[in-house]
Design a protein around this nucleic acid. Sequence first.
DNA 1: GCCGTTTTCGGCCCGACTGTTTTCAGTCG
Length: 573
Amino acid sequence: MSLQNQEIAELLTQVAQLLEIDGANPFRIRAYRNAALAVENHPRSLADMVRAQEPLSQIPGVGNDLAEKIQEAVLTGRLALREELLQHLPAGLLQLLRLPGLGPKRVRTLYLELKISDLAKLRAAVMANRVQTLPGFGPKLQAQLLKALNEPALQSSRRLWAAVKTVVDELTTMLQGISSVAAVSAAGSFRRACETVGDLDLLAAAPKAAPVMDAFVHFEDVREIISQGETRATVVLRSGMQVDLRVVPRESYGAALQYFTGSQAHNVALRKLAQQKNLKINEYGVFRGAKRLAGAEEAEIYRVLGLACPSPELRENRGELEAARLKTLPRLVALNDIRGDLHAHTNATDGADSLTAMADGARARGYEYLAITDHSQRVTVAHGLNTARLAHQLDAIDRLNEKGSGLLLLKSMEVDILEDGSLDLPEAMLARLDLTVCSVHSKFNLSRTAQTERILRAMDNPYFSILGHPTGRLLNERPPYDVDMEKILPGARARGCFLEVNSHPARLDLTDIYCREAKNLGVKISIATDAHAVRDFAQMAYGLNQARRGWLEPEDVLNTYAWKDLKKILRRK
DNA sequence: GCCGTTTTCGGCCCGACTGTTTTCAGTCG
């Protein structure tokens, strides 16, 4: 199996880190880092491009030399340069780089002066008090290293966006309560609506930073202050989450918000663009010489560069700057475009609420329709419906619809895709449904080929409508099953099938990259909550995040259509 | 190592904070 883009990016990053410890030309190192970012964010599989003999040097940041190295990585799974570097720089040094306070220079010093090549040797040297006497080290740094070695949990773990949202709401409310604060926002990966967030970045506008910083570091939930300067502070909350706050004057708020929202790759590209126009961007504004051209509002920053303002979700340097220049940015799908939910369970299987309660909940959200998609028989742990119980439910739905409450209940089921690719419901029953959500709930560990064929075979069934949670992953818990999305998407296209973005905060598959690929192929997406209770309907926001990161517009999303139109879209030829 | 509507050579995004220093290097985002 050939390397994924992320694995190629990881190899390039490792080379950059090793070159850095080696003391190589900083600009050469940057070239490897830039290339790693470009590869990681590239919408197409580089392995496919190599196979199709498409030139990799068309990717910005990848020149002839790196194109050759990437090709080597794809074809052999290895990089000769990386292995040469590892001849004289042990791989354990890369672990040392992850400790806060240790960068390439200090790691190099540790290795050259004390032959420290891994975490265990570092611990021994720290315990023997030998680190604090090295040049560039001191007692405080040594103590900090010991602490980090003793608390591996401090090494950053990423949290679900939905979990961070709670913290953001709390902290922004607290900061907004300070009378001098003119504006507050989360920035960074949270604002870009990434599926997980590492450190949380917050930004506030106030004429004087000191009172805001003071309130922040004394917030009741703060466990530890990592650093505190005049305008920036970093704390760790009791939950272990690290939060950075930056305070700027109101006239710089837009520039700071742009800057701290990132992504890094987006900002680097934006600054290069500014340079070409003889402008300088920093977190205080856009400047020509000493003259500030913009700063108070984020959109101004883009405007003075001749760009439309891309939504934060798009800022990954995946073509949004080009689209901003051409004024062709997408009109991203939003909550008020959503007309219904196409994946929901009731207490007939593993849901918590009754059919009528779910219908009432959907109506309360202003939806036009709700598909009831209880599990099929095979999912015994969820008490899946057999033919008789499903028939009973369909009759109940008919009776509710006849009452005409303003909400249309769609007859559906989350039908299991069995190992051989057949569907877990007889054809006569499938024929009674308005649509189906078909999902894999077993045999996650099939080979990539077998798993892909299993799903494509299921899609051959004319009653297959939507592939539910397409990769089966649970963020921070379970990896996706091995499936070739580069085959599934065109396969769905050819068969008139659709894919789901599952809005459960830990699922969120389809991922952003594949949402975009689906859009490009003309495969429409269902953004669905997989609600197991009325309260879960609120999860729609999380699925929307992912869809927006994937550049989806209302017309790309099944459940933005009125039922009379959706019915036609779903119809198989 | 990449890149070019001033350049095929000579640049390369920018600033805050800390600790180790004695004016600043290293780290981080």
